[in-house]
Computed example of a mutant assay.
Amino acid sequence: MLDESAKGVFTIAVTPFLPDGSLDLDSVDRVTDFYLEQGATGLTILGMMGEAGKLSAGESLAVIRRVTARVTIPVVVGVSAAGLAPMQALAVEAMQAGAAGVMVAPPHTLRSDGQIVSYYHSVVEALGEIPWVLQDFPLATGVQIPTSVIAQIVADCPTCVMLKHEDWPGLDKISALRAASEAGARRISILCGNGGLFLPEEMARGADGAMTGFAYPEMMAQVIAAIEGGGADRAQDIFDAYLPMARYEGQPGLGLAIRKYTLAKRGAIAHPTLRKPGAALNAAGMAEVDRLAARQAVRLAALG
Results as ranks from 00 to 15, higher is better:
Q115M: 13
G128F: 10
R65V: 04
M87L: 07
S27Y: 13
F17R: 06
A280W: 09
S80G: 11
A180I: 02
V75P: 14
A105Q: 08
R70K: 15
G42A: 07
A284M: 02
L55I: 00
F34R: 08
I45S: 07
A85G: 00
V14N: 07
T147S: 15
G142L: 05
V143R: 14
A297S: 10
L18K: 08
P138K: 10
V79H: 01
I258S: 07
V67C: 12
P19M: 05
T141P: 09
A301C: 09
A246M: 15
G128T: 02
C160Q: 03
G253N: 11
I227C: 10
V31C: 06
G47F: 05
L256D: 08
E249W: 11
K7S: 15
E228G: 12
D233K: 06
I238C: 02
G209F: 11
I150N: 01
M219F: 04
W132D: 05
D290H: 02
G47V: 01
V117Q: 03
H165D: 15
D29F: 11
Q115D: 14
D156T: 00
Q222P: 00
T44H: 09
A151E: 10
G250I: 00
A283D: 09
F17C: 05
M87A: 00
D233N: 11
I227A: 00
H271W: 14
E125Q: 15
L199E: 04
G98R: 03
M49W: 12
R299N: 08
G78E: 06
L84W: 03
A301R: 14
G50R: 03
G47W: 04
